[in-house]
């Protein structure tokens, strides 16, 4: 029993080790001037895609439900934290402000995850995927049309234009409709991003190996059997979905504090982004947290390394994704693999 425990904790330590080693190598390369400024600028995005991939993998691989709305949770986290940072830009010191921005971004994303989870988790499979996609698109579209301003009297919200806010002289527009949020302090850097990634990994890995995590995976493997041994299905599904949304929100906070103009466009928060993150998750291995981190980092940086392949990159990802799904999940492929390994085992004996 004890041996098994140490094995899982060793497994966890390997993941942290890989992240820290990669961080040290990349930082060393950067300080040695061996990295173009373009590449250095990709380090923070790479990390938040890794966080988003871990968040989605927790939903797909551990909870067993496909969400296509994680870009929406990123969007909520990004906007709520950017609003906070803009309001307190002058009044709070940088470090404390960014920490509180994280707290707010994560809390708001978790709240949205919880509220959306109530209706969504009553569905399953295809319907759940499409409805999460629908929620993600709704979030994106609404944030694209909303105007928010603040003056001495407090906040003003409008859906028409910035003039309709009706603010005092000292008023400042924070969300300018489709123009988004301008001038968020660029608090995010690679070190903070990696620390957030490590915290997320710590939470997820411990969660998976806890009583709660085993309950969630039991629901994934057989809902009816899990229910009959007394696992509260709704509670654990909500728990997992909310945590997953909160982590996507953390990725969103990093996003909004690493970009000068935050806009709620399809390029950043459309369902295509959710699908891109899903590609990272599937290629890294569904259910493998470490795989998600590695896949997200490599697949994000790869086009920069191999510029000649850039044109074909997405096409190759798609083919690999389809091939992996068939090899891993097709009944015929599984049978073949089992037969192969059985033969192998016999020879070994």
């Amino acid at each position: 029993m004890k041996k098994g425990l140490s094995k899982t904790s060793l497994n966890q330590l390997i993941t942290y080790g890989i992240v820290i080693a990669a961080y040290i190598i990349l930082q060393a390369l950067r300080s040695a001037g061996m990295m173009t400024s373009h590449l250095a600028g990709l380090l923070v995005p790479m990390t938040y895609y890794a966080i988003a991939a871990v968040a989605l993998n927790f939903c797909v691989g551990i909870l067993g439900e496909l969400s296509l709305g994680h870009a929406g949770f990123m969007c909520v986290g990004a906007f709520s934290s950017a609003i906070f940072s803009n309001v307190f830009k002058e009044t709070l010191p940088g470090g404390l402000r960014f920490f509180l921005a994280f707290v707010i971004g994560i809390a708001v994303a978790a709240l949205f995850g919880f509220l959306i989870g109530i209706p969504v988790l009553r569905l399953k499979g295809d319907y759940l995927a499409i409805v999460t996609l629908a929620f993600g698109e709704i979030i994106k579209n609404v944030l694209n049309a909303v105007y928010l301003g603040k003056d001495s009297k407090g906040f003003h919200v409008s859906m028409t234009n910035s003039m309709a806010l009706g603010m005092e002289e000292d008023g400042k527009v924070i969300i300018n409709g489709a123009m988004g949020i301008n001038g968020t302090p660029r608090d995010a850097n690679f070190t903070i991003a990696v620390i957030v990634l490590l915290i997320v990994l710590f939470i997820v890995q411990n969660m998976i190996n806890s009583r709660d995590g085993r309950a969630i995976m039991a629901i994934r493997d057989n809902r009816i059997a899990a229910e009959s041994v007394g696992i509260n299905i709704t509670r654990y599904k909500m728990l997992a979905f909310t945590i997953s949304a909160a982590m996507a929100g953390a990725a969103g906070v990093l996003f909004s504090h690493n970009i000068s103009t935050l806009q709620s466009t399809s390029q950043y928060f459309g369902y295509n982004v959710s699908i891109l993150i899903l590609v990272y998750v599937v290629l890294g291995g569904i259910g493998s947290i470490r795989g998600s981190v590695i896949a997200a980092c490599i697949l994000y940086l790869l086009p920069e390394m191999l510029r000649s392949l850039n044109k074909y990159r997405m096409l190759i990802y798609a083919i690999v994704l389809i091939a992996m799904m068939i090899i891993n999940w097709a009944p015929a492929a599984r049978e073949m693999r089992e037969r192969f390994f059985a033969k192998f085992r016999k020879e070994a004996v």
Partner: peptide, 23 residues
Amino acid sequence: PLRGAASPLAVLITAIGVSYFLE
């Protein structure tokens, strides 16, 4: 090939892959 796969998500993710491929 994925008909009768253990996970109901397998064929959905594959379909997303096909969509990605065609685009």
